[in-house]
């Protein structure tokens, strides 16, 4: 009994030493908490790597989720330094909640497009075809940015959609199109591009395009204000433009 207890004590001590030993090698890093819209997953991951390469000692921690969910997490006290949302409406929510430090900046734009499964089973050739009752269309729910944009597409084009499902996120829409469950879906051009050959893109007429303006801001609760400012510069500056344009985002 006694022997077992001492073995346990030794094990625990080793474990403790191991953990501290692990951290003592490098200087304590500043962590920059960046909360970004799900549609920014690929681009912000790349930008964060660039940023870490340029700023040794700063570690970027990324959290991706739906914009409204992010704002809600932040309101509930999640620690964060930078917030990037998929539209201005979500950012306005963060400003109203007193989360933002200074003025948010629009750094990119995104538009919706129609995607169909690779073999286009319903033969969708235009936005207008989506009104056909035989076509199973999936869109985002109006509560989330891509759904709000889908509503604006309906309004400006006069095409009335009766979706078979209103998803909570744009990835939900894309998934149902990629798997062939739906005949067509409205997603961001950036998502359509990242899906590659799994989907076919049907252009939405320019006049009916609903533009979502992506906003970024430093947060009031930040304890890394300087790195946060530098990160905003990177995102809104030339390197950010390049990476974002490569993914299909438009200039602000």
């Amino acid at each position: 009994m006694h022997a077992r207890a001492s073995v346990l004590a030794v094990l625990l001590t080793c474990l403790g030493l191991g953990v501290t030993g692990c951290g003592s090698g490098s200087p304590p890093a500043t962590v920059l908490d960046v909360h970004a819209a799900a549609s920014l997953t690929d681009t912000f991951t790349e930008l964060a790597e660039q940023f870490e390469a340029q700023h040794p000692g700063v570690e970027v921690s990324l959290n991706f989720a739906g914009s409204s969910a992010l704002v809600q997490q932040l309101s509930a006290g999640a620690p964060a330094d930078v917030l990037a949302t998929a539209d201005e409406r979500s950012m306005a929510g963060a400003v109203d909640a007193g989360l933002v430090d200074g003025e948010p900046e629009v750094f990119a734009t995104n538009v919706l497009t129609v995607v169909v499964p690779a073999d286009n089973p319903a033969g969708v050739g235009s936005l207008r075809d989506l009104a056909d009752p035989g076509v199973q269309v999936v869109v985002c729910a109006p509560q989330v940015p891509c759904g709000a944009a889908a509503e604006r597409v309906e309004e400006t084009s006069g095409v009335r959609l009766s979706p078979v499902s209103e998803e909570g996120s744009v990835t939900g829409v894309l998934g149902k199109v990629v798997s062939g469950q739906a005949d067509a879906g409205l997603v961001y051009v950036t998502d359509a591009r990242s899906a590659g050959d799994a989907v076919e893109v049907v252009e939405v007429p320019r006049a009916s395009r609903a533009v979502n303006r992506l906003s970024v801001a430093a947060l009031a609760d930040s304890d890394a204000t300087e790195p946060a400012r530098q990160f905003l510069e990177l995102v809104a500056g030339e390197p950010g433009r390049e990476v974002l344009a490569g993914a299909g985002f438009g200039a602000p």
């Binding site: 999936v138 729910a141 979706p163 078979v164 499902s165 209103e166 998803e167 909570g168 939900g172 149902k176």
Partner: peptide, 13 residues
């Protein structure tokens, strides 16, 4: 449900 049935008021939500 979310993965398989989708989400539409009155039908699957």
């Amino acid at each position: 449900t979310l993965t398989f049935a989708g989400s539409l008021q009155g039908t699957t939500r």
